[in-house]
Amino acid sequence: MEAMRWTLCLLAGCVPELIDDTPYVDEPRVLAIRLDPPEAVPGATVRASALFADAEGLVDGDPFVWSFCVARKPLAELGPVSPRCYEPGEAWEAMDGAQGALPADGCARFGPNPPPAEAGESGGRPVDPDPSGGYYQPVVASRPAVDEEPTLAFARLRCGIPNVNQETFVAWNRAYRDNVSPMPETLSVVGEAGTVVPWEGTGDAIEVQAGATMTLEVAWPACPDSASCGDGVCSPEEDVTTCRDDCEIPTGCNGAERYVVWDTADKILRLRREALSIAWYVTGGTVAEARTGRSADDPERTSRNEWTAPSSAGEVWGAVVLRDDRGGVGYRSFRVRVRDP
């Protein structure tokens, strides 16, 4: 492989290997932000919580000032939000601590509803959806006492779908289920023989030898691949009339859910499974991959990564963060005691 890399350098230029050290927590950092619920209508109340850690592990408390950013991003801005969201100012609407009501005009400001037309001009351009058909309200987490850039989270807005007839809208509305955040169901250690030993409880630490490598596996709940009344999940094909048990109080799934999306190119509704991304964080040692994941076509509900313990004894804190492609976030942490060889 190295010879091939060298040969390819001759042909097309050389790319430096910049180490991705985002898995390594050595200073206070936000690793994830979870919004509950992860998807809501404008005006609904959402609560934010951050996975905030430093070199010692999880940091208790909530040192953040939470705000909604109401500035709309110009098309010339290729970042995720308007630059006005990076600094306190008119664009920030403060939340009440870590919770707040989503701005009522969210679907006009960040969604498919046309914004008010300016004088003498035709109606404004609505915001385009992401590939999952979603629209998002920016949430800013800042620490005023610290000179650092804020952290951005996004609350998924339930706004409907644009430019469709009533029949299609009704069908979508009947089939669409608000997102439920994924949650790690188990975290396990994979033995040499392939045995999987679950980590019992988040407070437990396991012990490993310094410099040893172990394979970690995270698993998430299985979500139904088809509608089955009584499975506890209100699938897109079901509703309160066809399956009252599951849909009277619609219940989602903490894994890779199926959801309906409006395909703007083919002008049809499609059923799609969520893809899941897994981020791995540790305060010591090294991980083989900073990120792992499963695509929407992959039905597997586990993901593995290798972690190599540091060369000296001590305690290592780690976390696994699951993200689905509709903005849902779930995580769990773990501790490892490293002993000298």
Partner: peptide
């Protein structure tokens, strides 16, 4: 000059 962490996409966005 800096970077902002976008937790939804799990990427840093340059400033």
């Amino acid at each position: 000059q800096g970077a902002v962490y976008d937790v939804r996409r799990d990427v840093y966005q340059p400033v």
